[in-house]
Design a binder for these strands. Structure first.
Lengths: 210, 210
DNA sequence: TTGTATATGTAACCTTTGTTACTGATAAAT
DNA sequence: ATTTATCAGTAACAAAGGTTACATATACAA
């Protein structure tokens, strides 16, 4: 755990804080697809991502989803932080996008470290900052872009996060994360294939030059 | 200033913090329509809202707007806080919705008080929490609702913030804040009038029973 | 190999939203 | 009172996205 922690956070956290984290943090490894947080859950701890990626999803009244953003190495879940303070329930669902390693911090330490460590304060604030900004980018995309543009952004981002040019999802799954319908996504994907930007296969999509 | 401050924040801030705020804060009164922050601005201070309301807007590439949410008494601008830390530019525009009183805090105090005062930490975290949640609600509305529902929510919220059952805006202005077009909004407003939910007039709308 | 479940392709159609164009109404200015 | 600018109403049309229905393709299991 110590090596993982130092790799991801060694530069920004002072040694005393690293030691504190080693004392109280618990190391977890989860496989792709594992559900870390469900909507309505009370939050037990704050995750520090060491490797991998977690997708954060929102749900509408009908139970349909919408992908908000990914958390990656060095990130933490801002929603979690705010929930901890107020003892409120989670507004979002969090699912491991790939195999992921993380360190869970008990929530009582958050408040303590915020008073004690300048580097922790900076980390928490910067984390809020980037999450707010990612939420703004997601909102821009939904409010201002058409579905074809959103689909291209989605494919690019997914390829980046998964670190390969193959998207291993069905059209149905993609439609769900974009809060659209399968037929619409199939239609737009076919258009992208016709202009040689992607290659369609059963259960996967190969990205050529998006 | 002291009375205004105590009314809005006296319950959550300890007296020493109140005194600190009185020392370094500057009191400001702005009229409805005054632009407090423009996109791209560097942030000079952090606003504590004493009375009134501020609307926070996002802009697309074409320069068209979208209303994100309102800040009201007891609120502060989370975007401002994060911008202060990283010295980045504002991602949003902030305009007084009504005549508004606020106290500006120099940004250097933020970091100091976060270490020093537990109540300040709580305030900052809770502020992030509510802003993230309001952004989520806005996002829900845009991603999941049709324009007619969004329009109804908009009118209700605007009436609440302005504290009257008259919306003093043209259809054009409403269309801009919802990132739609005038004709669409006129059409939907007319439908609302036909089912006796509102009354349309030149330059204002009377809300009957939304 | 054959059957079965699932994924994808596609046409036809509908709803919502946006656009263009024009008309009439209203308020403010002269 | 008349002019002018702005605002609102509405029709006709276009485009995007969603829905239904069905055909075909593919993977996998029996």
């Amino acid at each position: 755990m110590i090596q993982e922690l130092k790799n991801s956070y060694g530069r920004q956290f002072e040694n005393t804080l690293i030691n504190d984290i080693l004392q109280v943090g618990t190391f977890r490894e989860v496989s792709a697809g594992y559900k870390l947080i469900e909507i309505g859950d009370y939050i037990k701890g704050m995750p520090l991502l060491v490797s991998g990626a977690i997708k954060v999803l929102r749900e509408d009244k009908e139970g349909d989803e919408l992908l908000l953003y990914y958390l990656e190495q060095g990130d933490t879940c801002s929603m979690t932080m705010t929930c901890c303070i107020g003892q409120t329930r989670s507004e979002i669902r969090a699912i491991a996008e790939v195999d992921t390693k993380l360190i869970m911090i008990p929530i009582r330490k958050m408040e303590e470290w915020t008073a004690k460590y300048k580097s922790w304060r900076n980390f928490v604030f910067e984390s809020y900052h980037s999450r707010l900004n990612e939420l703004l980018i997601t909102l821009d995309s939904i409010a201002f872009d058409r579905m074809d543009e959103r689909l291209v952004s989605y494919l690019k981002e997914k390829a980046r996060v998964n670190n390969e040019y193959i998207i291993r999802n069905t059209h149905q799954e993609i439609a769900q994360e974009l809060h659209s319908s399968r037929v619409v996504i199939s239609r737009l994907l076919k258009k992208l294939e016709q202009i040689d930007k992607i290659e369609l296969h059963r259960n996967y999509i190969k990205i050529l030059n998006l």
